[in-house]
Design a protein around this nucleic acid. Structure first.
Length: 781
DNA sequence: CAGTGAGCGAGCTTCCGCTTGACTT
């Protein structure tokens, strides 16, 4: 038996460390937290000074039992969880649930997974820091109280199964507020003036462009300016060249990795994390949930060698980065390749792409800055006070740009960041030939909508959420249907274009496409109404500084300056009163809007949130005749719906004719618009309207679906059992038998399988399937 | 799975942060 049991949080980490420590050490993993507040109850005794009731969740029973057994056999248990609030708490929960006496365990910490760091940690053990643990308990309990009191309030006042919390509700609010700003935004236009000049050098013509720094508010001003240019001469008044430089960005943290993978590879934040997890588990990168930009000394050294060998010594520059983000706890390293000498790895294409991104970013972070010469040339106009400015940028030394160019935040920025803009050599008082001047109408732009990754960036800036929760938070707010990730096509917009050439002015109108959105986050009606509700009654929790202020208090607790239950008590009194008070108010918070009067019945028409989502309603509930309801369409919104649109919705379900003597009915259901025909349902594509879909189109949809279903069938067994079939599903071929489905093994040829072979499959599969089904059933009950 | 929406009342939903598999028709 091993004398020493070391417990870390992640199994991949355990495997690595075991290699460093030799045979007297057995290294195991706790798989994160081993205890938590009860899943379905509040789990906090509000009456007894907020005493928490911790439980070992069912999926953690096995690992706790195993660790308990191993710890009994060991002389010393080394609690080696992360050195942050959560890590300290994990150690404490381990000590509690494994019943470790004070002299049985030692607490150690390290920030990088290197042999040196671990041996150093082993020789510097300490005890569990109870203050830090208490800070975690305060965090955990406050989050539970907020989440488990606000969510039920939403169920009562807005709609069942909604949720609210310190992190997710602020994330939604950011999107709701940004959308409101965008809707209220009125673009203003002005005229931007660009001149194109030409100079001759060695009989070669060089052309270049120059901007007028002044923007003209109106077309008339622009025209006046161009008019003044008639007969003008242009000459160089001043030239100025200054060196400039660009420095590389810090190595990746979770948040910056998510942002760059989104911009450069088009990954969602969840996809980035899944791929990174794979790379981590196979030992190719360091831990992927981190807020630290720090690199291990050994990695810095190895980077220096690789850069010197590959690019030359002048490309290497050792850099240490320090974090700028609020509330960073820096329990790990930055995300980097474990072995920097591997500039590529085997694996899926996603893994290769993400690995290369990480490799380049890490290497670049240890490289020299790129050097530029920036030239500004002022060009005078003989007939005007205005000046043109031409700017050039010449790359003198590429430095880190050799391996890595960071993507720009601004999606519309031109991608010339690494290319030089070269100006011809020009002398002061040199005369220039004008080719033409363009005055182009440009519009101001609203702030961009959030992408998943830019929302993560914003949350990190506000100190809200942690590396392990960014991706889950983003999917929660989409799962609750508070926000929608959507792409939208733009629309055409006309803009003025004035050209000045050979002393003549030509005016035209041109069009451009504007408002294109790709994978952006849009708030839904539910998101808007819930945010309105929470901001109205719980503005303190929805405040962007709420978490930051709390973090200061948690720090005080961690330093032993304040008691954790006192902090909770300070918060809970007023909070709970507000919840009670709001509960008592009888009216629902459903974002109701009176749209007008139904011309047929004279009854009121409303739009509001109902039990199943946004809907329109004719008539009031206290009237004798029951109100009529209809769900609103995906592309409509509560805030902008009109009486006309609402009345349209009541025209469904709509009979659209007969097909082979059976009725075709178009309507909208839970899963969107559909056609009902012969007892079956056929979905109408999103961009088509069930209100005016033609009979021919309906038949087309039905036949297409029937055809697809036919293709789904690989084989039937008319003789043996007409209800059993081999079908093609999302996960490959399967056998459908007596209402259940059985997977067909990959190496089998489904076309050639006989009925008895298929039935054999069902026999093999029954035992594990049954036990799982049972489990599910009992947990539900 | 293709309805629903009031109100009754049963029983259910829900938070944030740590961590992975087992499993999908």
């Amino acid at each position: 038996m091993a004398k020493n049991l070391v417990i870390v949080e992640s199994p991949a980490k355990a495997k690595t460390i075991e290699g460093f420590l030799g045979k007297d050490f057995l290294v195991k993993s706790s798989y994160g937290h081993v205890r938590d507040l009860s899943k379905n109850k509040l789990g906090v005794d509000v009456e007894k000074n907020f005493a928490p009731n911790y439980e070992i969740p069912p999926d953690k029973k096995k690992v706790v039992t195993e660790l308990k057994k191993l710890s009994k056999d060991a002389e010393t248990v080394w609690l080696a969880t992360d050195e942050d609030r959560e890590g300290e708490a994990i150690s404490w929960h381990l000590a509690e649930s494994l019943k470790l006496d004070d002299d049985k365990y030692k607490r150690i910490v390290f920030h990088e997974i290197t042999a040196k760091a671990i041996k150093n940690a082993i020789s510097n053990p300490r005890k569990i820091d109870n203050n830090l643990v208490n800070a975690q308990q305060a965090r955990r309990i406050l989050d539970r109280l907020v989440g488990f009191e606000l969510s039920p309030l939403l169920w009562k006042k807005v709609k069942p199964a909604l949720s609210a919390g310190r992190v997710q509700s602020v994330a939604v609010k950011l999107i709701v507020e940004r959308e409101r700003e965008i809707q209220n935004f009125k673009p203003e236009s002005s005229y931007r003036v660009i001149a194109y000049f030409e100079v001759k050098k060695n009989n070669e013509k060089h052309s270049f462009k120059a901007d007028l720094p002044k923007r003209f508010k109106t077309k008339k001003e622009a025209l006046d300016f161009l008019e003044s240019c008639k007969g003008a001469e242009y000459s160089v008044e001043n030239t100025e060249t200054k060196p400039s430089k660009k420095t590389p960005s810090a190595p990746f943290t979770t948040s910056t990795l998510q942002q760059e993978a989104s911009r450069k590879l088009g990954f969602s934040v969840a996809r980035t994390m899944m791929v990174a997890q794979k790379l981590y588990e196979s030992g190719k990168i360091t831990y992927m949930r981190t807020d630290s930009v720090n690199l291990a000394d050994s990695a810095i050294e190895s980077a220096k060698k690789i850069i010197s060998n590959q690019f030359g010594e002048k490309y290497a520059k050792t850099r240490k980065y320090s974090t700028k983000s609020k509330g960073a706890q820096e329990a790990h390293e930055a995300i980097r390749p474990t072995y920097l000498e591997n500039d590529a790895v085997a694996g899926s294409s996603d893994e290769q792409k993400l690995y290369q991104l990480i490799w380049k970013r890490t290497i670049a972070s240890q490289m020299s800055e790129a050097l530029f010469d920036k030239t500004n040339i002022t060009i005078g106009i003989s007939t005007s006070e205005y000046k043109f400015i031409a700017t050039g940028e010449v790359l003198v030394f590429d430095g880190f740009l050799k391996v890595y160019i960071e993507s720009s935040e601004d999606e519309d920025a031109t991608s010339e960041s690494s290319d030089s803009i070269i100006l011809p050599p020009l002398k002061v008082s040199q005369k220039l030939d004008l080719k033409e001047i363009n005055a182009i109408e440009r519009f101001t732009k609203h702030l961009p909508r959030f992408t998943e990754a830019s929302l993560v960036k914003k949350l990190e800036e506000l100190g809200i959420g942690r590396p392990s929760t960014y991706a889950p938070t983003i999917s929660t707010i989409q799962k609750r249907e508070y926000v929608l990730k959507e792409s939208r096509e733009g629309h055409e917009r006309e803009y003025g274009f004035i050209c000045f050439k050979e002393n003549k002015i030509f005016e035209t109108k041109k069009t451009e496409n504007t408002g294109v959105e790709k994978n952006k986050l849009f708030p839904t009606d539910i998101g808007v109404v819930v945010t309105k509700f929470l901001v109205e009654y719980f503005d303190d929790i929805l405040d962007y500084n709420f978490t930051a202020e709390l973090e200061k208090k948690f720090d005080d607790i961690a330093q032993g300056l304040y008691e954790w239950n006192k902090l909770i008590n300070d918060f809970y009194g007023a909070f709970h009163d507000k919840v009670e008070e709001t509960t008592k108010k009888s009216e629902k918070f459903s974002g109701t809007r009176l749209l007008g009067e139904d011309p047929k019945s004279g009854r009121n028409v409303y739009a509001r949130i109902g039990r199943y989502g946004p809907m329109v309603q004719i008539g009031d509930t206290d009237e004798e005749e029951k109100p009529k309801f209809a769900g609103i369409r995906k592309n409509q919104s509560l805030e902008s719906s009109t009486l006309e649109e609402a009345l349209e919705l009541f025209k469904l379900p709509r009979k659209i004719g007969l097909y082979e003597d059976k009725e075709l009915i178009a309507s909208v259901g839970r899963f969107g618009p559909y056609i009902k025909y012969d007892g079956s349902f056929y979905s109408i594509p999103k961009d088509e309207d069930p209100l005016n879909i033609s009979k021919d189109r309906a038949v087309e949809i039905i036949e297409a679906k029937k055809e697809a279903d036919r293709k789904k069938i690989i084989k039937t067994f008319e003789k043996e059992d007409p209800d059993s079939k081999i079908l093609r599903g999302r996960w490959g071929p399967y056998f459908s038998y007596k209402g259940k489905n059985y997977r067909i093994p990959k190496d089998a040829e489904p076309e050639k399988m006989t009925y008895s072979e298929c039935v054999k499959l069902t026999k093999q599969a029954t035992s594990p399937k049954k036990t799982r089904k049972k489990k599910k059933g009992t947990t539900k009950k």
